[in-house]
Design a binder for these strands. Structure first.
Lengths: 186, 186
DNA sequence: TGTCTTTTGTAACGAACACTACAGATTTGG
DNA sequence: CCAAATCTGTAGTGTTCGTTACAAAAGACA
């Protein structure tokens, strides 16, 4: 038996909340900020999403499936680790500076999401290791070290974007970073 | 005409406060945390350092002169940009994981200190440009792009340290990162 | 229409926040 | 030893935090 219908679009509110957490972080974004931003009063917000922590968790999941999905897609779709990393860096330079969004990466900016970052490094490391095994990369290549290096560069790019870097600067970073990629022995 | 003497060591308290801000950041560190940590009651703390913002500013200045001085020293003391960057990366891998301190870099972790980061990039860029002018680096080298690349790597190393990376991992990042350094044309 | 269920706005809760009024304690200078 | 000056601990200030009690409003089903 149903009752009164929700007076707001759950997805639209979730996107507004995502951008707020993305811009300012979890702690610096108050529930009062969110109610003012969305026009949804506290009881409705809590009924729809649970408490602030649960709302943030849902925001993170949504972010992974939308704004943050380009990294996973590159690693999954590109045939080699080199092409995957090239694409991640090239796309990050665009994504992290997109005009109608907060800058940088929500996940890379949230201290409590280290497990997601660790998983991303492991996935890239596996892809690198595969290329070492097939001879696509030299046998001397250390897959873990190379994956952690890429992680460092991407995090640096996200931080720089938040500091106001330009798209050209990030593209330069990507270009220079790729020149550290191991070249096969002849 | 003097009165009652201060009951605590100002420098010692300042160091404890520095580590608190360093570990948890400005917002997440409450004045109540600081009074509990140092044993100094609020009125004494405010009399000695001013308000929370002024205290943080003094902490940052102190950090620059102590824990964070190794980067400036490397750029000032090393004869070439390459040696300076090599040294910054090598020392960062040690400094950012030191056992009796918070991990990472206080300045790189504080969103409001972008001006200090910008100044550090400019200083490195100048050193790189000097080496381009003297022929130490190839003429095609873009000093700004290379400096921003180094900034990205260092920030990534600081972030990784906070996430629990090991010293070996950071050393690997430094090593791989240096292989992107331009080599002179023969 | 009447009843049941769910959402809504108002208005508050206790806790934690940065900060300070005030009075007693402690020191130097006269 | 007295008086002026500085520091200390207690106990507050008003504000904001996340969260919720409550009753009116609104739609679904009998």
């Amino acid at each position: 038996m149903a009752g009164r219908r929700r007076g707001f679009d759950r997805e639209e509110v979730l996107d507004q909340v995502t951008r707020a957490f993305w811009r300012s972080g979890y702690d610096a974004t108050s529930v009062a900020d969110l109610t003012k931003l969305t026009g949804v009063n506290p009881p409705s917000l809590y009924a729809a999403f649970g408490d602030k922590k649960a709302l943030f968790n849902e925001v993170v999941e949504r972010y992974r499936r939308t704004y943050g999905a380009f990294t996973t897609r590159a690693v999954d779709e590109e045939p080699t680790a080199r092409l995957a990393v090239e694409r991640v860096l090239r796309e990050a330079a665009v994504e992290y500076i997109a005009e109608d969004r907060p800058r940088g990466c929500l996940i890379l900016s949230a201290p409590e999401l280290g497990h997601l970052r660790k998983a991303a490094i492991a996935a890239l490391e596996d892809k690198i290791r595969h290329d070492v095994d097939t001879g696509e990369l030299p046998a001397r290549t250390d897959p873990h070290a190379l994956a952690v290096y890429v992680a460092a560069v991407v995090r640096g790019m996200s931080d720089l974007a938040r500091d106001g870097a330009t798209r050209e600067e990030l593209h330069h970073v990507a270009e220079v970073a790729m020149s550290a990629w191991p070249s096969p022995v002849p």
